[in-house]
């Protein structure tokens, strides 16, 4: 009994250290997937909750990062995709709130937090994030997993649940679109040269 309890505590400690190690990467990805800070918070929490529940199924020594990213992606696909497709009413509220001088509106701290995030996000690298956000979801996921988190094709195939060939073609098409969105920025930052005619 005593040994069992101790090992449970150990498991919890192990999970905690892994969860905190990857938390920012998960949160950042959640933001790119949901495009909304409040949903991203929820998605992160759901992911960790599920990961904790199924942590006994995780085999020590195998790839934790790929394992927890798979949970994140699955949770997102199953639960957030539908909600996210709702029309622009939410945007309207945000705009109305942002420009309103009405003190009452400022009571909604949740919205305030969301705007803080947005302001914060736009101060840095907005071009890259905006460009990623413009990609279709299927493309966005593989580009983020490959180019930002450095997963291999095999790992991405496992995380997203599609064959390696599909990963390859989605990446190819996703990068092509990104190139278009980011061409000016890449030139300006000296990553590519302006086309000489």
């Amino acid at each position: 009994m005593l040994t069992k309890r101790k090992s449970r505590d150990e498991i919890k400690k192990e999970f905690e250290s892994l969860a905190f190690e990857y938390m920012d990467q998960l949160f950042s990805t959640a933001l790119r997937l949901t495009k909304n800070p409040l949903d991203a918070e929820d998605l992160l929490q759901d992911t960790l909750l599920r990961a904790y529940r199924f942590f006994n199924k995780f085999q020590p020594g195998t790839n934790f990062k790929a394992w927890i990213f798979k949970i994140l992606t699955n949770t997102f696909i199953n639960r957030y995709r539908k909600q996210q497709r709702e029309p622009q009413q939410v945007d309207f509220e945000k705009v109305e709130f942002a420009y309103s001088d009405d003190g009452k509106a400022s009571q909604d701290r949740a919205h305030q937090e969301e705007i803080d995030y947005r302001v914060h996000e736009h101060l840095f690298d907005d071009k890259i994030k905006d460009a990623l956000d413009r990609l279709a979801e299927d493309f966005r996921i593989v580009v983020i997993l490959c180019d930002i988190h450095g997963f291999s094709y095999k790992e991405i195939a496992e995380i997203v649940g599609v064959p390696i060939g599909t990963v390859m073609s989605r990446l190819s098409r996703g990068r092509k679109q990104l190139q278009k969105f980011l061409e000016e920025y890449a030139i300006q930052e000296g990553y590519i040269k302006r086309k000489s005619n």
């Binding site: 920012d24 990467q25 949160f27 929490q45 690298d125 890259i128 180019d147």
Partner: peptide, 26 residues
């Protein structure tokens, strides 16, 4: 071009940090 794009994303993408209240809650 693809290599340049890959490099751009790797070097210039700023990872967001998890808000303190979310960390505390977890």
């Amino acid at each position: 071009q693809q290599s340049a794009l890959k490099k751009l994303l790797r070097e210039r993408y700023r990872m967001e940090t998890t808000p303190a209240h979310v960390r505390a809650r977890i």
